[in-house]
């Protein structure tokens, strides 16, 4: 369906409907961390650090069966136009939690009972897609930290602008108001499988169109996976694995 409409609908930055913004991924950016990475979608820049498995306090939060995954997502105060007051907001707490759920299906934490794996995600510059960029960075940082994982997690937002499905919305596109307006559907999936681990939607979308959304997300995630894979291999090839 996308093909016919491609000619009629123009994205504000000239991208094709299924075209993502330029992606950059870099692993090993924080020497103190057990694992770390940066991931960008265009002007959105996310960084992530992983510490652990390490001691979990307080004790009552420990799980005797496996390590607890604890994610923290937040914006730096100057990553957005109106200065964000330092400290967690309800928004950042919700995103932290859905990020945990998005990542945990890929992880095998059974060998580390009573411990915690801490994932710290911060957005340096925001232009929509911050949670998805954050998940991509976190997935890389977890792999970098040597955490057992059955696969990487890839994440992207699929949007609907009026009636047109597009991938990887910018802030400007999120504010699109013509026709049916803008719908933003943040997705994450296990790279080499058809399982989705993050689904968060705001807007209006017909049930049958959701099927198209998952297909578009799957295609986009293939590209993300290649970028992630290369970033991990580069850290070894370039001999940059200093700690």
């Amino acid at each position: 369906m996308a093909k016919e409409k491609e000619s009629s609908f123009k994205r504000s930055d000239g991208r094709k409907l299924n075209e993502m913004r330029p992606m950059i991924a870099k692993v090993g950016i924080i020497p103190n961390a057990d694992g770390s990475a940066m991931f960008t979608f265009g002007n959105t820049i996310a960084i992530a650090a992983v510490y652990g498995p390490r001691k979990l306090h307080p004790q009552h939060m420990q799980n005797p069966q496996k390590a607890v995954l604890r994610c923290n997502y937040d914006l730096l105060s100057f990553s957005v136009s109106d200065r964000k007051k330092p400290g967690p907001s309800r928004r950042s707490q919700e995103i932290s939690k859905v990020t945990e759920w998005a990542l945990s299906p890929a992880l095998d934490l059974n060998s580390f009972p009573n411990t915690v794996v801490d994932v710290q995600i911060y957005i340096l510059q925001a232009d929509a897609g911050t949670r998805t960029a954050g998940i991509n960075a976190a997935s890389l940082a977890l792999a970098h930290a040597g955490i057992p994982m059955r696969d990487l997690i890839c994440s992207v937002a699929v949007g609907k602008l009026d009636k047109n499905l597009v991938v990887d919305l910018t802030k400007e596109e999120e504010d699109f108001e013509e026709g049916e307006g803008a719908t933003d559907f943040a997705m994450a999936k296990i790279a080499n499988s058809d399982e989705f681990t993050l689904m968060q939607l705001d807007g209006k979308i017909q049930p049958e169109v959701i099927n198209e959304v998952t297909k578009l997300a799957t295609e986009a995630c293939k590209q993300i996976y290649e970028v992630q894979k290369k970033a991990l291999k580069d850290v070894v090839e370039s001999n940059g694995g200093k700690k």
Partner: peptide, 9 residues
Amino acid sequence: NVSNKAEGS
């Protein structure tokens, strides 16, 4: 230019 949303960075 750590962030283009900052007035300076």
